Computed example of a mutant assay.
Amino acid sequence: MVFRVIEGGLAIAAPADTACEQPSREDVEHEAERRLRAINYQMWERREAVVGISMPREIKYLAMQVIFAAQAIASLRRIPQDFQADFYWPALDELLAVRTGP
């Protein structure tokens, strides 16, 4: 009986640079923008400017928290690899269940 070693994906190793790239401030800003889009912040902001109806307090405070978190994370000397984890950002789940549009 002859055994043969099956290498699978081990024959081609991934470059070490791509696995350990340090996140940048731009990455943090993109994550903050993604979270603001999730709550439709621009729509609420435009509605307030055009119609004059103030945006819901929850949306305004959540946006302030997201912006603050982004600034705090971006100001770190070493941005964590998992900066996109919900641990670093304010919770959106309860708000999205309550308000998704005007």
Rank of each mutant, 00 (worst) to 15 (best):
M1H: 11
F3Q: 11
F3V: 15
R4P: 04
R4Q: 08
V5C: 10
I6G: 04
I6A: 07
E7S: 13
E7M: 14
G8A: 08
G8D: 04
G8K: 09
G9H: 12
L10M: 09
A11Q: 09
A11Y: 06
I12L: 11
I12V: 13
I12E: 07
A13V: 15
A13W: 04
A13Y: 05
A14H: 04
P15M: 11
P15V: 14
A16V: 14
D17G: 14
D17E: 11
T18H: 06
E21W: 12
E21N: 12
E21F: 14
E21L: 15
S24H: 10
S24K: 13
S24Y: 10
E26D: 06
E26Y: 10
E29W: 01
H30C: 12
H30I: 15
H30F: 12
E31I: 07
A32Q: 01
A32W: 00
A32P: 01
E33L: 14
E33R: 14
R34N: 08
L36T: 11
L36H: 07
R37E: 07
A38M: 11
A38P: 05
A38I: 14
I39S: 00
I39Q: 00
I39D: 00
I39C: 00
N40F: 13
N40C: 12
Q42K: 15
W44Q: 07
W44Y: 15
E45Y: 10
R46H: 06
R47F: 04
R47T: 05
E48L: 04
E48N: 02
A49E: 04
A49R: 13
V50S: 05
I53Y: 06
S54M: 03
S54I: 03
M55D: 00
M55T: 09
P56M: 04
P56C: 09
R57N: 12
E58N: 13
I59M: 02
I59P: 00
K60A: 08
K60D: 03
K60P: 02
Y61L: 13
L62M: 14
L62H: 09
A63H: 01
M64E: 05
M64Q: 10
M64I: 06
M64K: 08
M64V: 05
Q65P: 08
V66I: 15
V66Y: 00
I67R: 01
I67W: 02
F68D: 08
A69M: 05
A70E: 01
A70T: 11
Q71W: 01
Q71S: 09
Q71C: 12
Q71G: 11
A72D: 03
A74K: 04
R77W: 05
R78F: 06
R78I: 13
I79Q: 02
I79P: 01
P80Q: 02
P80K: 04
P80N: 03
P80C: 09
Q81K: 13
Q81G: 12
Q81P: 04
Q81L: 12
D82L: 09
D82C: 12
D82R: 04
D82F: 03
F83E: 02
F83H: 05
Q84L: 13
A85T: 11
A85N: 09
Y88L: 10
Y88N: 08
Y88W: 13
W89N: 03
L92I: 15
L92N: 03
D93I: 09
D93Q: 10
D93V: 05
E94R: 13
E94L: 14
L95S: 01
L96G: 04
L96A: 05
A97Q: 07
A97N: 08
A97Y: 02
A97G: 10
V98P: 00
R99P: 01
R99G: 03
R99K: 15
R99D: 03
